[in-house]
C-alpha cells in the first residue's frame, strides 16, 4: 500500500504545488491521475519518488521510501530517464544488475512487440520509440508501483491504444500503476480508479465501478468536479463578437 498523508510541497519561489494531499493506493490498482496543467501531478510523483523534498508522510507498506525500498517504485516520464548513449541491450544488462527483480522476459517481449532495435543507442530512436522505451524500462524494472507521467506524449493514437492493450495483458495482479495524463477519454476503459488534482489538492477520487453504478462517464465526473461551465465558450465568443 502506498500511503500519502497530508503531503505538502512549496517551491522556493513560494508557489504551493501540493496542499495537503491524502491518498492511498493499494496493490493491483490502475489509477489515473488527472488535473489541469500545474495541478500538481508531476510534483506528486516526484515527491513519492523522493526526488523533491516535501512535508507530510509518504509510506510504502508502512515504511518511508528510502534507497532500501526505492526499487519497488519505477518511473516513466515524458522527460525521459534512460541513458541516451547506451543501447537497449546495455540498458537491459544495467537494469538487471541494479534491479534484482528485473523482468527480462517482459523486456524482450515488449521490445519485440514495438520492434525497437536492441543494438542501437537510444538517442538515435524516434520520439515515439523513446517514449516506448521509457515505458518498457519502467514496466520491466520489477517494481510493485509503476509511476507514469505523461508517458505517451508524442505517440500516435494507434500506438497508444496498442500500448494500453498490451499493458492490460501483461500486468501481474499485484502490480500497481499510477498514470498521469491529459488523455482522459483514452484511458477511461483502462483505469480502475480516477484521482483528480486541483490546485494541489485531491478534488475527486472515484473508482470506475462507482461511476458505472452511477451511470456517469469519467468525463462527466471530471467536468462536475471542476465545475466546468459548458456555455463558457459560447459566452466568450458572444462577448468577443459584441465587441466587434
Amino acid at each position: 500500500m502506498l500511503d500519502l498523508k497530508n503531503v505538502k510541497k512549496t517551491y522556493l519561489g513560494g508557489s504551493t504545488a501540493l496542499d495537503g494531499v491524502n491518498l492511498s493506493i493499494g496493490p493491483g490498482e490502475i489509477v489515473g491521475l488527472f488535473g489541469e496543467n500545474g495541478a500538481g501531478k508531476t510534483t506528486l510523483m516526484k515527491c513519492i519518488l523522493g526526488l523533491l523534498r516535501y512535508q507530510g508522510e509518504i509510506a510504502l507498506d508502512g515504511q518511508p521510501i528510502t534507497p532500501k525500498n526505492i526499487a519497488r517504485l519505477s518511473f516513466a516520464t515524458c522527460e525521459h530517464s534512460y541513458f541516451p548513449a547506451l543501447t537497449a541491450g546495455a540498458h537491459r544488462d544495467f537494469y538487471q544488475e541494479h534491479f534484482p527483480r528485473f523482468r527480462g522476459k517482459r523486456f524482450a517481449a515488449l521490445m519485440d512487440f514495438f520492434q525497437l532495435p536492441m543494438g542501437k543507442a537510444v538517442r538515435s530512436f524516434s520520439t515515439g520509440q523513446k517514449n516506448q522505451f521509457e515505458v518498457i524500462l519502467a514496466l520491466s524494472q520489477g517494481a510493485d508501483y509503476i509511476l507514469m507521467d505523461e508517458p505517451f506524449a508524442g505517440n500516435d493514437i494507434f500506438n497508444r491504444e496498442d500500448f494500453y492493450k498490451v499493458l492490460l495483458g501483461i500486468l501481474e495482479p499485484e502490480e500497481t500503476i499510477l498514470l498521469s495524463t491529459h488523455l482522459l477519454e483514452e484511458v477511461q476503459h483502462f483505469i480502475g480508479r480516477a484521482v483528480l488534482l486541483h490546485q494541489g489538492k485531491v478534488a475527486g477520487d472515484i473508482t470506475t465501478l462507482e461511476l458505472e453504478e452511477q451511470g456517469r462517464g469519467l468525463m462527466d465526473f471530471v467536468k462536475e468536479t471542476y465545475q466546468y461551465k459548458a456555455d463558457r465558450v459560447s459566452r466568450a465568443l458572444g462577448e468577443l463578437t459584441d465587441r466587434e
Binding site: L49, L51, I70, A71, T77, S81, Y82, H98
Partner: peptide
Amino acid sequence: RGVKTGYTLRRLGV
C-alpha cells in the same frame, strides 16, 4: 541534455 538520467541514478542499488 534533453533527458533526466538523475531520476534513474537516484533509484539504483548504488
